[in-house]
């Protein structure tokens, strides 16, 4: 039991440090949040387009809810391990983490998660202001389905994290790995439901997009939260999230293990 207590203490101590750093960098965090208001811009565009009647099964109110939720979910599933890892492998800062009796991956998990409350505290007023301006939000009205929201958000976060971890691990072999993540990000902007709900995609493309990991990270949690999914659809989505997590997690684990063998510990 004392081992468990030790692990919990480690998590708490690292989270405290992560929060202290987040507070130290609060202005840059706020700027990052403000620069990620893309869904709110989509909201304005789609709202205008839906003025004369619904588009697909979205009317103006649906678009408001969807894009505010998309903005908030994006904040909640955010991490930046790809940039941290890319930099720290290249300049050797990873050595500092490797000397501590804690997995560097766990370190990144905790530091990234510990910033989420502050991130949400800064983002929520923006979302709230938009809702006040547009006249309210429809949310999931089945209270039992709300039980699925925390695990779905957790899996979405983990999925985003493991994708970033996998790409970041390429820095063990490449001079710069983070730009490769832009490829993922480009596909994410189109296919996740970040700019357009995936259910509005042309038939065929819509079905494909909805089984890809991009949608599992953003579109699926958003649709769940605004009450667009039934129990069975929600469970399928949850299964897809878990499946992608197993696959991408396995890739990340292999890359991490092999990467450490190739690590050059330069810059010291």
């Amino acid at each position: 039991m004392s081992t468990l207590r030790h692990h919990l203490a480690v998590v708490a101590a690292m989270a405290r440090l992560g929060m202290a750093e987040a507070v130290a960098y609060r202005v840059s965090l706020l700027i990052w949040i403000v620069t990620s208001i893309f869904p709110l811009i989509s909201l304005v565009l789609w709202r205008a387009l839906a003025e004369d009647g619904p588009i697909g099964d979205y009317d103006q109110g649906d678009f408001d809810s969807y894009f505010v939720a998309a903005f908030l979910v994006r904040q909640l599933v955010a991490s930046w391990v790809v940039w941290d890892l890319d930099r720290s492998v290249r300049n050797g800062d990873l050595s500092v983490l490797l000397l501590r009796p804690v997995s560097p991956v766990l370190h990144h998990v905790i530091i990234n998660v510990s910033v989420l409350p502050l991130r949400l505290a800064l983002a929520a007023p923006i979302g709230l202001a938009v809702l006040l301006a547009t006249g309210g939000m429809q949310v999931l009205d089945d209270p039992t389905l709300w039980l699925l929201v925390p695990p779905v958000l957790a899996l979405a976060w983990l999925l985003n994290f493991t994708v970033q971890l996998s790409v970041g691990c390429l820095a063990f072999w490449l001079t710069k790995a983070a730009p490769l993540f832009d490829l993922w990000l480009g596909a994410f902007l189109v296919l996740s439901g970040y700019a357009v709900p995936t259910s509005l995609f042309p038939a065929g493309l819509s079905e494909v997009a909805r089984v890809l990991p991009f949608h599992a990270v953003l579109g699926f949690p958003v649709e769940l939260m605004v009450g667009r999914l039934s129990w069975s659809e929600a469970l399928v989505g949850l299964g897809l999230q878990a499946g992608w997590l197993v696959i991408i997690g396995a890739v990340a684990a292999v890359l991490w293990r092999r990467g450490l063998r190739a690590y050059g510990a330069f810059g010291a």
Binding site: A20, E21, A24, D93, S95, V96, L99, G267, A268
Partner: peptide, 14 residues
């Protein structure tokens, strides 16, 4: 413990 003259383990802004 490893002390590297050119590497820091201390958090820069804390």
């Amino acid at each position: 413990a490893l002390v590297m003259g050119q590497k820091r383990q201390l958090s820069w802004d804390l």
